[in-house]
């Protein structure tokens, strides 16, 4: 990948990677750091990487950085279970966000990551597996559970309203 192609990656993927990270971390500065370090790593390896593989590489590095960051800050729930106290957080401020975003926030970091890689970036189960270090069937099952959770949340909200 040439220097020009690397800069093309910045233009094409920086926003997407940032969206992916910031929605998971829900902390803009941390997300910015993760994106910057991910692009630094991409730059380090840009010579041996092809432009076609750059996006997946970037998201892989970004995902790992994010998980590392979450582990450091001990905010991760890798098991992916529905947090018991998540419903307590519901308050007036939540009306600002859409129900869908609130539903997404109910998921674990891994589930949320899979959801975003699938819906935002359009990756296949295989590709998502490569990025997150899972196999394709795990991705499929995790995503299925995630959608059911989100669906349950949305339906419940609609019933309440």
């Amino acid at each position: 990948m040439t220097e020009k192609e690397y800069n093309g990656c910045v233009d094409l993927f920086a926003d997407g990677l940032y969206r992916f990270i910031v929605k998971n971390l829900r902390h803009e500065e941390d997300a910015r750091d993760v994106v910057q370090s991910s692009f630094e790593i991409l730059w380090k390896h840009h010579v041996e990487l092809s432009f076609e593989k750059a996006k997946a590489y970037l998201f892989t590095v970004g995902y790992r950085n994010m998980i590392d960051h979450l582990r450091k800050t001990k905010r991760i729930n890798l098991v992916g279970e529905f947090p018991e106290d998540s419903q307590v957080k519901e308050g007036q401020q939540l009306h600002v966000k859409s129900t869908l975003m609130r539903a997404l926030e109910q998921l674990s970091e891994v589930q949320r990551s899979l959801m975003m890689l699938k819906d935002y970036e359009g990756y296949s189960y295989e590709e998502i597996g490569a990025i997150t270090g899972l196999n394709a069937s795990q991705v499929k099952v995790y995503l299925h559970r995630a959608r059911l959770k989100m669906k349950a949340y949305i339906v419940k909200k609609e019933n309440v309203l």
């Binding site: 926003d15 994106v35 997404l104 995630a146 959608r147």
Partner: peptide, 19 residues
């Protein structure tokens, strides 16, 4: 439950990424 891929969040520090 599908997220909208058109939803834009702009990374505000792109200038720091260009090499």
């Amino acid at each position: 439950t599908k997220l909208d891929p058109e939803e834009k969040i702009v990374f505000p520090f792109k200038a720091s990424l260009y090499h």
